[in-house]
Computed example of a mutant assay.
Amino acid sequence: MSELNILYVEDDPRAAEAVRTLVAADGERLAWEQTGTSGLQRAGAEAFDVIILDRMLPDIDGLTVVSRLRAAGVDTPVLMLSALGRSENRIEGLQAGVDDYLAKPYEPQELLARVKALHRRSSGKVHGAVIIYGAFECHVKARTGFRSGRHIALSPREFALFRYFMENAGETVTREMLLRDVWNMNFDPQTNVVDVNIGRLRRKLEDGFACPALETIWGAGYRLTTGE
């Protein structure tokens, strides 16, 4: 897979350097602009895979930036970062044209996971009828799962979770990603629905096997192992 070309619009040099280090360690490229005006110019002049946009900028705010980008026909997916993390703040961002919204402070690996998820969705990546990762197989059309050749009986919700983990195999999947992409919620209902369903799926994937199937990444989310 080729490296991602990411634009980061952020007025704080320390925050910009931290994100630059993070994405560079993952093999991606990052261009940095310090103001909304320069970010708009850069986004209009170059092709980027994802734009990370801070909401509070010294000249024009991030909501205005993304609104102008969309009005200009720039459809690059945008991840907005903000210390304003209430549900109404997230709704404002989504209504302005933001594709994802991450409240500060955030876990660095969650930022990286969200950037990659945005790129996958925007690139229209389509998997074949069978997704294979390590000992696991996900038969998309038949809606069935296997581990080491053994069929795993999954409910519709468990299969949706299993398929999502297979599509994001080896990467950290956050609670927010699951709520958005599996439950179609852009907010946290403050229930344990994710944890309960993850627990059920984990038990089914691991029943009779010595190696774990799902790792809990504390403070970040979950990751599917190879099962081998």
Rank of each mutant, 00 (worst) to 15 (best):
M1A: 13
N5W: 01
I6M: 12
L7Y: 04
L7C: 12
A16F: 03
E17D: 10
L22V: 04
G27L: 14
T35L: 13
T35G: 11
G36Q: 06
A43P: 08
E46L: 07
I51V: 15
I52M: 11
D59T: 06
I60R: 05
G62I: 14
V66N: 12
R68G: 14
R70D: 07
V74L: 09
D75L: 04
T76S: 08
T76Q: 08
V78M: 04
L79A: 02
S82G: 10
A83F: 14
L84C: 12
R86T: 02
R86A: 14
N89R: 02
P108D: 04
L111E: 03
V115C: 13
K116I: 14
L118W: 10
G124V: 04
A135D: 14
F136G: 13
T144K: 12
G145Q: 00
S148D: 13
G149F: 01
G149Q: 01
I152M: 06
A153E: 13
R157W: 02
R157T: 06
F162M: 03
E167M: 15
T174H: 11
R175N: 15
M177P: 13
D181H: 04
N184T: 11
D188E: 07
Q190I: 07
T191V: 07
V194L: 06
D195I: 14
R202E: 02
L205H: 05
W218T: 15
A220T: 09
Y222V: 02
R223P: 10
L224G: 03
T225F: 12
G227R: 00
G227P: 06
E228H: 06
